[in-house]
Design a binder for these strands. Structure first.
Length: 560
RNA sequence: UGUCCGAUGGUGUAACUGGCAACACGUCUGCCUCUGGAGCAGAAGAGUCUAGGUUCGAUUCCUAGUCGGACAACCA
C-alpha cells in the first residue's frame, strides 16, 4: 500500500471522518464494511469500494467487516461467496474474524419488523405485485394508499406470523412500512420490507420462507455491526431517508451513510447484469476471461493487487460521475511490473537470421540482465547460435529514414549478444517473400567486451532457433470498440459494440528459461510487453496472456 | 412536472475552508539508453456551467437559471 504523504489533501469522506473523530462521535471509533451481495463476481468497481472501505479502516486504526447482504435466495449462491472472499483476500485485505452475513440477522430483523408492526408503522398488504406497482404513483404523481393499510396491529401480527409459518404462497402478501404514499421520494411510499419466497437459502436452508428486502436489511445490519460510516454508491442516496426512518422508528444505533460516485471505465461495461450476460451468452470464456473487468479476470490477465490498489488510490473519490480512461489502469500495471517483472526475450513473428561467419555448431551462453530496474534480480544465461529468430517488423529491405532496425548493409545490436550486419536476403523466387536474412557478426562486440561499446542505432531481441520453445500467446484488445458501450444508439445494445478482434492467438518462440514458470508468473518480453502465465499453461504447452504492451513511440509516428 | 445529487484543462482528483488554479494520466519537445521500454529535463493545455449578488478580493458564500445523473423491481 502506498504510504500516506503527509499533508496530502483528504477526500470528502476522510474529511467527514476526521470531523467525527474531532468531535468524539462514536467514541472516536472508525468502523466500515464492504457489503457485497453474493450474486455475481467482483469487478474493478468493487475494488474501488474495497480499497476505500478497508483503506479507511486501516488509515484510522479502525476495523472493516466483510458482510454478505444475502437477502434474496433466488439469485444468490455459495459460488459467489467463495469467489468474493478469494478476491478480497487477493487484493490484500483482511477482515479477520469479522465475516458476517445479513442472513445471520434474520431473527433480529424479524424482531425489528415486529416492533414496527406494534407501533402501527408496518402492515401486511394483500395486493399483488402489479397492484402495488400501479398504486405507487410516479415520481411526479403521488401514489394511492393500500386498502389494507389500516389493518389492526393484531391482525398484522397474526398475518405476519402466518407468513413466516409458510401458510401463504409466494407473492400472496408482503409486509410494508407505513410511511407516506404522497412522498416526493418514491422510497418512502410504503415500501415493501418483507416478501414471501419459498426457496431455500444458501445459508439458512429452509428455515425461512419470508425474506427481508435489501432496504430493510442493509441499514439495520450496519447498525447491528455498529458501523460508524456506511459508505455506498450514489444511487443509494435516495434510499437514505428510508434507512434513517427505520433506524429512528426501531430505535437503534445510527451509522452515517456516505455516498460516492461509482467507478466507470472507458471501453468496458461494469454492470453485473451485463457481465453475467457476457459470460452466459459466451461472448467471453467465463468470469475470469482476461478481457473481463472482473477481479478474477484482471488477475488472470496478469494484473497485480498492488497495481489495482494503486489505481484505486490514484483515481480518487468524489461524488461527481466519472469515466476513468482505461489507459490509467494500464499505466498502473506497467509501473508496477516495470519494477518487478523479469525480462526475457521472445519472438512473436519470426524471421530467420543466419550468421554466415558464426561456427556451425557453436552455442554460446550469453549473460543477460534479468531486470535493469532491479539489480538484485540478477542475471541469466541465454543460448546463442548460428540461426536466430528476430521479429519480422525488425527488418526492412527498403527502410524509411527513421527506421533504426535491421536493413541491408546496416548494423544492429542483438540484445545481450553481438552486433550484426545484414549482408543479403534470401527470397522465395515465386512469391518474393523473405525467407531468411544473412548477416555477419562482429566477434569483438559481445556484450561486456571492451570493444562492445560501439554505437549502433538499434537493439533487437532475438531467440536461438535451435533452442527456442514454442508457446501459445494470447493477445487481448479492449472488449468494446467504443468508449462508452452503455450509451448505445437507437436500436442497438452494448453487445453491438463488442470488438470482434479482442482475442488474437499466436505462436511465440521464447527463450527456454520460461519453460517451468508457475501460473501467474509475470515477465516482460523485451521490447514487446508484459506477459502472464495463464492457468492453461503447462511445461509441455506454454500459454501466455499479454497483460499490456510496452509503450511504443513508433506507434505515434505512424499515426501522425 | 417531483425529490435528491453533481458541475474545475482531453481524463481524473486538488486548492490549507474567500487571496488571481495544483497533482497525476495523456499530449508535445529535448537529453540519455545494449528494450524506440524505463529514466531525466522542460512545454502546451482550464481562468473553474451561466447570470446576478455579498466582498478590497469568489473555484470556494447567497440567489436564479442551464446542463448532467439517480429514484416509480415482492433486485441489490
Amino acid at each position: 500500500m502506498k504510504d500516506e504523504i503527509p499533508g496530502r489533501s483528504l477526500n470528502f469522506i476522510e474529511e467527514i471522518i476526521e470531523e467525527d473523530l474531532r468531535s468524539g462521535k462514536n467514541e472516536s471509533r472508525v468502523h466500515t464494511r464492504f457489503p457485497p451481495e453474493p450474486n455475481g463476481y467482483l469487478h474493478i468497481g468493487h475494488a474501488k469500494s474495497i480499497c476505500l472501505n478497508f483503506g479507511l479502516g486501516k488509515k484510522y486504526n479502525g476495523k472493516t467487516n466483510l458482510r454478505f447482504d444475502d437477502t434474496n435466495p433466488v439469485k444468490e449462491d455459495v459460488e459467489y461467496v467463495d469467489s468474493i472472499k478469494e478476491d478480497v483476500r487477493w487484493l490484500g485485505f483482511d477482515w479477520e474474524d469479522r465475516e458476517f452475513f445479513a442472513s445471520d440477522y434474520f431473527e433480529q430483523l424479524y424482531e425489528f419488523a415486529l416492533i414496527l408492526i406494534r407501533k402501527g408503522k408496518a402492515f401486511v398488504c394483500d395486493m399483488s405485485a402489479e397492484e402495488i406497482s400501479e398504486t405507487r404513483g410516479t415520481p411526479t404523481r403521488p401514489g394511492k394508499e393500500s386498502p389494507f393499510r389500516n389493518r389492526s396491529v393484531d391482525e398484522n401480527l397474526d398475518l405476519f406470523a402466518r407468513m413466516r409459518a409458510g401458510e401463504f404462497p409466494d407473492g400472496a402478501r408482503v409486509l410494508r412500512a407505513k410511511i407516506d404514499m404522497a412522498s416526493p421520494n418514491m422510497h418512502m411510499r410504503d415500501p415493501i420490507i418483507y416478501r414471501i419466497i419459498h426457496t431455500s437459502h444458501h445459508r439458512t436452508g429452509d428455515k425461512w420462507c419470508i425474506y427481508p428486502m435489501y432496504d430493510f436489511a442493509h441499514g439495520q445490519s450496519d447498525s447491528i455491526e455498529r458501523i460508524t460510516h456506511s459508505i455506498c454508491t450514489l444511487e443509494f442516496e435516495v434510499h437514505r431517508p428510508f434507512y434513517d426512518w427505520l433506524i429512528q422508528e426501531i430505535g437503534i444505533y445510527a451509522p452515517r451513510q456516505i455516498e460516492f460516485a461509482r467507478l466507470n471505465l472507458s471501453y468496458t461495461v461494469m454492470s453485473k447484469r451485463k457481465l453475467l450476460e457476457l459470460v452466459q451468452d459466451k461472448y467471453v470464456s467465463g468470469w475470469d476471461d482476461p478481457r473481463m473487468p472482473t477481479i478474477c479476470g484482471l488477475r488472470r490477465r496478469g494484473y497485480t493487487p498492488e497495481s489495482i490498489r494503486n489505481f484505486a488510490d490514484i483515481i480518487g473519490v468524489a461524488k461527481r460521475d466519472n469515466v476513468i480512461d482505461i489507459n490509467l489502469l494500464e499505466f498502473c500495471i506497467r509501473e508496477d511490473l516495470n519494477k518487478k517483472a523479469s525480462r526475457i526475450m521472445g519472438v512473436l513473428n519470426p524471421l530467420k537470421i543466419v550468421l554466415d561467419n558464426y561456427p556451425e555448431d557453436l552455442v554460446e551462453q550469453m549473460e543477460a540482465v534479468n531486470n535493469p530496474e532491479d539489480p538484485s534480480a540478477g542475471n541469466r544465461k541465454v543460448l546463442f547460435s548460428k540461426e536466430l529468430y528476430i521479429e519480422q517488423e525488425d527488418f526492412m529491405e527498403d527502410p524509411p529514414g527513421k527506421f533504426f532496425r535491421l536493413a541491408p548493409g546496416r548494423e544492429v545490436r542483438l540484445r545481450s549478444a553481438y552486433i550484426i550486419k545484414c549482408e543479403s536476403v534470401v527470397k522465395d523466387p515465386e512469391t518474393g517473400q523473405i525467407l531468411e536474412v544473412h548477416c555477419t557478426y562482429d566477434p569483438e562486440t559481445k556484450s561486456g567486451m571492451p570493444q562492445s561499446n560501439r554505437k549502433v542505432k538499434g537493439t533487437l531481441h532475438w531467440v536461438s532457433v535451435r533452442h527456442a520453445v514454442k508457446a501459445e500467446i494470447r493477445i487481448y484488445d479492449r472488449l468494446f470498440m467504443v468508449e462508452n458501450p452503455d450509451n448505445a444508439e437507437e436500436g442497438k445494445t452494448y453487445k453491438d459494440y463488442l470488438n470482434p478482434d479482442s482475442l488474437q492467438i499466436r505462436t511465440g518462440y521464447l527463450e527456454p528459461s520460461v519453460r517451468n514458470s508457475a501460473h501467474l508468473q509475470k515477465y516482460q518480453f523485451e521490447r514487446l510487453g508484459y506477459y502472464n502465465v495463464d492457468y492453461d499453461s503447462s511445461p509441455e504447452n506454454l500459454v501466455f496472456n499479454c497483460i499490456v504492451p510496452l509503450r511504443d513511440g513508433r506507434v505515434k509516428e505512424k499515426t501522425k
